[in-house]
Simulated assay, not measured.
Amino acid sequence: MHNAPSVVYPLGRSRFQAGVLLGLWLSGVVVLILWWRSAPGWDWRLGLGLAAVVAAGAAAAWGWKNSPVGQLRWDGQVWSWESQGYQAGTAARELTVALDFQRILLLRLENHDHATLWLWADRRAMPERWLDLRRAVYSRRKVWPDATPFDISLPAAVDTAAASSSSRLSS
């Protein structure tokens, strides 16, 4: 199997994410309206429901507006994230696909400190590199011989097994 090509892909605010958030928020508004129409009168529970729907809408809008914007880079071995906050690029420990809708990917990028970034990748951002990104996301990371730890403790395990079997034979 060939390795995936190096790729740099721009990521930003997702219209798909905005649509999902808006749809969920509108569902909450519809439920609140139906509850208000079926309730005998206004009481504190309706006020609390209204406050919850308004707060959820504000939180969704704030979260979408502050979504990470930058570039995801794959060099053939390591993923890195480059944005205004991380201009030099931050090497990531692991990239996983959380959702795959063929034209849109929700990616989970974890760095060495276990901080997680959730990123939406959209084919419309750069259609000519979309398949390269998909190949890189789903490819196995190439393990270089010098990347493995020097002491993997396998010989020690073999020696103790040999020692225990030789002690059983001598007794």
Results as ranks from 00 to 15, higher is better:
139 S>M: 02
108 R>N: 12
118 W>A: 15
93 R>M: 14
118 W>Y: 14
44 W>H: 03
161 A>I: 11
104 I>E: 09
50 L>T: 12
38 S>L: 09
44 W>E: 13
62 W>H: 13
67 S>Y: 03
161 A>S: 11
13 R>A: 08
102 Q>E: 13
163 A>C: 02
80 S>D: 07
144 W>M: 13
69 V>S: 14
27 S>A: 14
139 S>A: 15
50 L>N: 05
63 G>W: 05
53 V>K: 00
71 Q>A: 14
66 N>M: 07
106 L>E: 11
46 L>E: 04
102 Q>I: 09
120 W>P: 01
56 A>C: 08
134 R>F: 03
159 D>N: 06
17 Q>V: 11
90 T>H: 05
17 Q>I: 08
152 I>Q: 12
37 R>M: 12
165 S>P: 02
109 L>E: 04
109 L>A: 13
68 P>Q: 06
17 Q>S: 11
135 R>H: 10
145 P>N: 10
38 S>Q: 13
134 R>Y: 05
134 R>N: 03
153 S>K: 10
117 L>I: 07
79 W>Y: 08
6 S>Y: 02
44 W>M: 07
88 A>M: 06
100 D>F: 06
16 F>C: 01
100 D>K: 01
4 A>T: 03
79 W>K: 00
125 A>H: 07
126 M>E: 15
44 W>A: 09
156 A>P: 01
137 V>I: 07
26 L>R: 09
89 G>M: 05
9 Y>W: 11
131 L>F: 05
39 A>W: 01
85 G>Q: 08
23 G>V: 05
123 R>S: 05
99 L>T: 05
26 L>I: 11
36 W>P: 00
46 L>K: 01
5 P>D: 10
21 L>A: 10
29 V>H: 00
147 A>G: 09
141 R>C: 02
125 A>N: 04
101 F>I: 07
11 L>C: 14
1 M>R: 04
30 V>W: 13
22 L>N: 00
107 L>S: 10
138 Y>C: 12
42 W>E: 13
152 I>P: 00
